[in-house]
Design a binder for these strands. Structure first.
Lengths: 351, 351
DNA sequence: TTTAGCACTCAACGGCAAAGAGTGCTAACA
DNA sequence: TGTTAGCACTCTTTGCCGTTGAGTGCTAAA
């Protein structure tokens, strides 16, 4: 939900007509005219009256015309108003809910496969693209194991409080024995267990600057290894998976315009930008909708994002959702995303 | 290289003209007529003569006409003949080779990032899609570490001879102590170090059937854990990454035909089919070319694959390559793929 | 054997008129 | 005063049609 202030007040009739335009356009992808609305919806108003109202709505910035003699199309502001104030909440049908639950992947501590499967599931059910971001930003450290691989290469496996496991291959400045590594691991576990990764990184940076670290060999080595372990982790802090991008080709708005389509597919290949967008969603509670130009990235201004965070216990693990054209079936997709996020949370929490 | 037998012998002139048609079509994506060839190539032949030869080539199945009054287009058989017998080997320019070497990712035992980066590199340089398959089929086991996570969950980390590291979370039937796990790991290391994963799986299956295993607790437990460890590994035996799929949208043959484009993008999303295709390439030494209908999968009949295996020492690690339209700049792409595969092999071998 | 000439085919292009959807404005109506 | 019918106007879409041009196959001459 965005701030609702700053809108000119719309009377009942204007709201109804705006709703009719948005819904009709979402269904047909054709600009909608006054005649169409007058026929298809039972407002008991003539096209002429509707025209007047639509002209008002256009002036207020909710609608626009592709060209003079065409019908109207919602603007981003129009979609926003629709999402925030007009659409009723839609529940998933029982069959659909059952279908999702049935297709739900099993979880055995390996997030990667779950993420991939969920994004596929979301894309199939929405017929748009599915997207999942997994973050370690608020992950809590539980334990690390250090395994000598060969030479100065060491495998650091760290287990998170949520039961998730990550591993990183790090290269030390000087070779150490497995015994030394064991001692270091013990130290790190004792010192940092139960703390968020974010904080640990900070602590290590602080300690390394402290004087006494210079004199204590174990401490010095521990900080070196710990630094590498947790710093390296940062690189994989966020993992993002997209599924079903081919679905967007079916959308008529891109069919005719291959230029836009190319732009969009390229945007989807550049994960870093998507991460930036979804990062914002991590802070939003509940189902979050981003419409077209509400993101700062021009190549996705023709898209909307519907997302929701998912958790393990009270830790935020990531965010999942659907990317589709602005002309998206919002109520349905929002219900789908909400339901799926709940299921994932359940899976991770009790798993 | 395919079998060269079974071709009607082509005389010098026919070969030249076939080559001209293929090259011209690769360049322009337009069906090529007799007039064009007569002008652009210095054969000293009139269009009429060329027409006769082209008619012969069409009868033999090397060329075809989209419609009566259009020029000719190579068939898959035509491309095949071109690739096998007509194109000269092309070397990468020094600048390009340098560019690749410079953009080459560093390697520190983590394959995942290398694979992703290589596929991106291949796609950027070829302007088609880059593809990399990593396989464990011929991987050799070096060492395993078993780490208790919580309850019956155990993290199995296995190091391969090539220095690569994989991990799998497995769930035991009964909880074990870290000490027991350590003993089991020792046993597995002693027993199986230096053997291919493939073979190990087989051995374990055999042993589990043996009678004496029933009486020896350590052995029984070891087989149970080993079975899970190596069996689980099979699931991730093959990993495939595609980069730059958006590039294919630029190809004129797909621009006009969104139906084909959709089909192709969907095919790219179904990794299992791509794996099947690339699996075949694993057995081919040298640069391998697959043209259109030479794969059994209809959705990629408009594409060609150019691939080459890469190695660590004498072990095959995977296969990399480029996927593009059949109308592909074969000599250039083949040189690129060859060079890149060599670099990767070098990286993995000395790394 | 090669080539010039010719009749033929067919996609592509441009122009044009008709159709159709939609609008804004005005005047009449309840 | 709000609503609506009517109307003139705009502009895209569609279909039609003739023209153009690239390309072919065939035949007959060099």
């Amino acid at each position: 939900m965005r701030d609702t202030a700053g809108y000119e007040p719309l009377d009942e009739r204007a709201r109804n007509i705006l709703m009719a335009v948005v819904q009709s356009f979402i269904q047909t992808a054709e600009p909608v005219g006054s005649r169409t609305i007058s026929k298809r919806f039972e407002f008991g108003l003539s096209p002429a009256t509707i025209r007047n109202v639509m002209a008002d709505l256009e002036e207020m910035g909710f609608l626009e015309q592709p060209h003079t003699s065409a019908g109207r199309v919602p603007t981003d502001k129009g979609y926003r108003y629709y999402v925030d104030h007009l659409q009723g909440p839609e529940a998933l049908s029982a069959e659909e809910a059952a279908l999702i639950a049935q297709r739900f992947p099993p979880y055995r501590g390996e997030m990667d496969e779950v993420i991939a499967e969920i994004s596929r599931l979301l894309s199939e059910l929405s017929r748009y693209a599915g997207i999942v971001l997994r973050t370690l930003a608020s992950a809590v450290f539980s334990r690390v194991e250090l395994v000598k691989v060969r030479g100065p290469q060491v495998l650091a496996i760290f287990v998170l409080e949520s039961g998730m496991v990550h591993h990183k291959l790090i290269t030390l400045e000087e070779e150490m024995t497995q015994d030394e590594l064991q001692r270091i691991a013990n130290y790190l576990n004792q010192e940092f267990a139960g703390q968020p990764l974010r904080l640990i990184r900070q602590r290590i940076a602080e300690r390394m600057a402290e004087e006494k670290v210079q004199y204590d060999q174990l401490l010095r080595q521990a900080m070196q290894v710990g630094g590498k372990t947790f710093e390296e982790a940062a690189k994989k802090d966020e993992e993002i998976v997209l599924g079903g991008t081919a679905n967007i080709i079916d959308q008529p708005e891109f069919q005719s315009n291959t230029e836009r389509m190319k732009e969009l597919l390229r945007a989807f290949e550049d994960k870093s930008r998507l991460i930036r967008i979804l990062d914002k969603c991590l802070e939003e509670p509940g189902v979050n909708v981003i419409i077209g130009s509400e993101t700062p990235f021009k190549d996705v201004h023709e898209c909307s994002f519907v997302t929701r965070t998912f958790h393990s216990g009270d830790r935020t693990i990531g965010v999942l959702g659907v990317v589709g054209p602005k002309r998206m079936a919002y109520p349905r997709v929002m219900a789908l995303v909400d339901y799926t996020a709940n299921l994932v949370t359940q899976l991770l929490t009790q798993g």
